[in-house]
């Protein structure tokens, strides 16, 4: 359609007809996508909160796990809470330092060499390995020799967390300006000193934030624990030996139970788990906002 430029005849309105319709439809579809995602999210969160909130109280969080047939208001999920805390903490203690060191190698020492390219690539690939494989792995090389334990579960979770921590730490280290490193070198620092005293402190906000997100992920995982901690119902304060339990494990067991009481406890545990993950996520965001100086 030719554009006319006779005076008084200039049409600056939106293109009419099918072009406009197609454009509007596209925009509507995009918004619809968002709605399609908000609905189930809202549904899940609402259900968990509605069904779980009534169960939560201090005795629930600390009480022992009753048999599945027990009614809803009896007992609690104490051992599972303890288990989750122990096992996730142990996994964090193992995975985070190793992940940070690995990222330090990639960014500070590896540079462009083929080895660091390979490690970085395979680390990203590893984040896509299903978590159940980590469980089968630790079962094969550890549980078969040393039995079920919280430690075995922590090893499996650690394998899961390692590549996540490596990637997020690496991104943070990359953002530290080189001028800081040069300033430190110029004062006669060795490379390890430069890294430990200037680079890591400068990136620490982002590193901690990334680690917290990895912890949130690990705390919610069930599959790696299935064959490593042998879900029990009693509390085990020794994370290094003997079977254990965790919140996700308990939820998994209770979800397939026909008993209403068990299901109710499952909802309570689910709310607890989501609350933990949510708190970690919020804290991570706060830390990024306040302390990650070089991010964004």
């Amino acid at each position: 359609m030719a554009v006319t430029t006779e005076p008084g005849n200039i049409d600056l309105r939106e293109p009419k007809g099918w072009r406009r319709t197609k454009n509007r439809t596209a925009t509507a579809l995009m918004v619809l996508s968002l709605v399609l995602v908000i609905i189930p999210l809202g549904f899940v969160l609402f259900t968990v909160i509605a069904k779980g909130a009534s169960a939560i109280n201090w005795s629930f969080l600390t009480g022992s796990i009753p048999p599945n047939v027990a009614p809803a208001d009896e007992g609690g999920i104490g051992p599972a809470v303890v288990g989750t805390i122990e096992i996730t903490a142990l996994a964090t203690v193992m995975a985070v330092p190793l992940g940070v060191l690995g990222a330090v190698y990639l960014n500070e020492y590896g540079g462009r060499n083929w080895l660091s390219a390979l490690i970085g690539f395979m680390s990203d690939v590893m984040t896509g390995v299903p978590s159940i494989i980590m469980g089968l792995f630790i079962f094969s090389i550890w549980v078969l020799h040393f039995g079920y334990s919280g430690l075995a579960g922590a090893l499996a979770l650690g394998c899961l967390m390692l590549p996540i921590v490596i990637r997020s730490t690496y991104e943070m280290l990359r953002l530290v300006p080189n001028s800081l490193r040069e300033g430190s070198y110029a004062l006669g620092a060795t490379k390890s000193r430069v890294t430990m005293t200037v680079v890591l402190p400068a990136a620490i906000g982002g590193i901690v934030s990334g680690a917290l997100l990895a912890v949130a992920r690990a705390a919610g995982e069930t599959a790696p624990l299935l064959f490593t901690i042998l879900t029990v119902t009693t509390v085990n304060r020794n994370v290094f030996s003997g079977p254990n339990t965790s919140l996700p494990s308990l939820i998994f067991v209770n979800a397939s139970s026909p008993y209403v009481g068990a299901q109710a406890r499952g909802w309570g545990a689910a709310l607890t788990l989501i609350a933990i993950a949510f708190i970690l996520m919020v804290v991570a965001r706060l830390i990024t906002a306040r302390f990650a100086r070089y991010a964004q």
Binding site: P177, S179, L180, E182, G183, S184, Y185, A186, L187, G188, A189, T190, V198, P201, A202, R293
Partner: peptide, 20 residues
């Protein structure tokens, strides 16, 4: 080089104080 730089210091074009 570490020993060299302890004796021969450097000030850069853009001030680069550490975030400390």
């Amino acid at each position: 080089p570490i020993a060299v730089r302890r004796r021969i210091g450097m000030v850069f074009q853009k001030p680069n104080p550490f975030p400390k």
